[in-house]
Amino acid sequence: MSDFLNYLILGITRGSMYALIALGYTLVYGVLQLINFAHSEVFMSGAFGSYLVVHAIVGNGQGVSGLGAVFVIIAGLLSGAITGAAVAFLLERVAYRPLRRRGAPKLAFLISAIGASFFLAQLFGKMFNRLGQNQFPTYFDANKVLFTIAGAPVRLLQVIIIVAALLLMFFLDRLVSGTKLGRSIRATAEDAPTAALMGVDIDRTISRTFIIGGALAGAAGFLFGTAFVFTNTMGFIPGIKAFAAAVLGGIGNIRGAMIGGLLLGIAENLIPTAPWVSTAWIGIQWTDVVAFVILILILVFRPTGILGERLGRAA
């Protein structure tokens, strides 16, 4: 039982990071009906950007008090979000807007996105390094056990990741359903030409959508880098998984992306290790296979994902 819970907690932790990244895919799909394949690099840039800020504040991590650590984590989240937002904003300006202005076919956007993705990954490799194990300084005891559920320890870092992700998703939900910007995003998603006639500035709305998605991914980059390691190629696998999560929940659907992310994270931690005691089962090397088999199965039975694809309606 405690093993099961251990894996479940790991799954929720990983899943909440997937969900944060997945939101960026889904938001952009909602307003543009295109998959932003460079989004994984926005996520990566958040890790590097927040590292610079965190490192500038705490150095190698010695002598940070409890309250100081809280401050540093918030600074890390913010700087990750700002970096991600800035990169996503530039990405839209450079790689998408010129194509949109000229009415390019959808395929051109895809190629442009892949090009931007390579460019960003290599740029960060060149600017920083290409090592496989950059780490954030240790400025708090990430492994401190806060409480245990039926013998399974829940650690500080896991709580931070889950709480931060939930808070961000809550704010996003409020933003999209309750503000003027949110209304224009929903209007654009539902019917862009009509929204434009009603006085919605489409270009600005699209740009802001990229910024919101980029901020969430950048914050996820900080959380991911703090939990594991960060590299210039770190975006690829979480990016693909988050994209899968967005499709799983229903691409274009914000709550769908949240549910899809969590579900995927939990499934890929629980299923390969089930039944948690025996060693005869398939094992961890099947993690990715499990993730994508689930995706295929759900799409076979629900082609539009769990919640269906509508940004306009499902707030």
Binding site: D3, N6, Y7, L10, T13, R14, F224, A227, F228, V229, T231, M234, I237, N269, P272, T273, W276, V277, I284, T287
Partner: peptide, 12 residues
């Protein structure tokens, strides 16, 4: 990059 599940399996 995420060895969480692997490490948990080893510990268990």
């Amino acid at each position: 990059t995420d060895y969480g599940a692997t490490a948990t399996t080893v510990a268990a």
